[in-house]
Write a protein that binds this DNA or RNA. Structure first.
Lengths: 157, 157
DNA sequence: AATTATGTATCCGTCACTGTTTCAATTGCT
DNA sequence: AGCAATTGAAACAGTGACGGATACATAATT
């Protein structure tokens, strides 16, 4: 069998994202903090990057995804940049996680041996458990909005 | 700045594990299914690996961690292998996740700009959100035991 | 002694990510 | 018209972790 990744059961972009969710969340919070809610208040990727701090290209890679998800808008050219298209109080963090293609990365259940009824059930059960954990994380994030990041007491997030 | 990983804010083994949790969970379920609850019913890493299927060494790398966590015991030599040291009904999946060093891998909040009070708060808030999601996932997993994987209806996991 | 196993170390190929550079296209300003 | 600012996308390199494979010392059974 070819090396790498336990055959090919890996879906979900296993092992990817990493910093995409934090960067996206930070960027949205920064936009909200700066009241960037219209085109004439656009924030450049350079300024966003400086606030992390990270590279402007990394920021643009993320803002492009947020724009595709309809959370922000961007405009090229002088005075361009990104601004919020949705009220920050209405942007839930699970939406952000989905926008950047994230999941909890607990892995993917290996297939199990064919034939044995129990052997077939185990992978399904493991999958179900992983999915349940993933859903729980999303549900928890859905109770936090971008506004909450700025306003709610940290202990109550 | 040196390339890779946004400076060094990455802790938590970011991006690691992947298959460790599924493999560990599958292995424990298999041991429970085979009633491997004592030394004389030990299952070899070769058999466990065949049930995934994956490589025996990969299995041993995981079972070694489970043994260190006190969930199973292993013994070398002919007739050796692994067996459960704890009742499968008492092994919660969050314990398994911790045993293999897992987390939800949502990333690590970038530091943010010094000086600005809001700029300092954002990273803390992002961190808090990630931690909350991680806890939610662990909490959900804590409500599933290895026995449940074999016995409980899949929809009720 | 021969056999069966674990655990660990080492090496390799793969994969995704971050950071960087480059470039076309877009927009505002003078 | 021309220039400066800015996005988005592509291409490239370096890093890190993982899964798979092999090898080997150690341990336990027969």
């Amino acid at each position: 069998m070819a090396p790498g990744r336990l055959c090919s059961y890996v879906s979900c972009n296993a092992m990817s994202d990493s910093q995409k969710f934090p960067v996206a969340t930070h960027a949205l919070a920064y936009l909200a903090h700066k009241d960037a809610t219209a085109m004439d208040r656009a924030i450049s990727s350079a300024e966003l990057a400086a606030s992390m701090p990270t590279n402007p290209v990394v920021v643009r890679r993320v803002t492009a995804m947020l724009a595709k998800a309809g959370l922000i808008d961007t405009r090229a050219g002088a005075g361009g940049g990104a601004w919020l298209k949705v009220d920050p109080g209405a942007i839930r963090l699970d939406t952000v996680l989905k926008a950047v293609g994230g999941c909890t990365h607990l892995g993917v259940a290996p297939p199990g041996t064919k034939g044995c009824p129990v052997g077939e059930r185990i992978p399904e059960a493991v999958s179900a458990a992983i999915t349940a954990a993933d859903l729980a994380a999303h549900e928890r994030l859905s109770r936090i909005t971008v506004s909450d990041l700025l306003n709610r007491p940290l202990e109550k997030l």
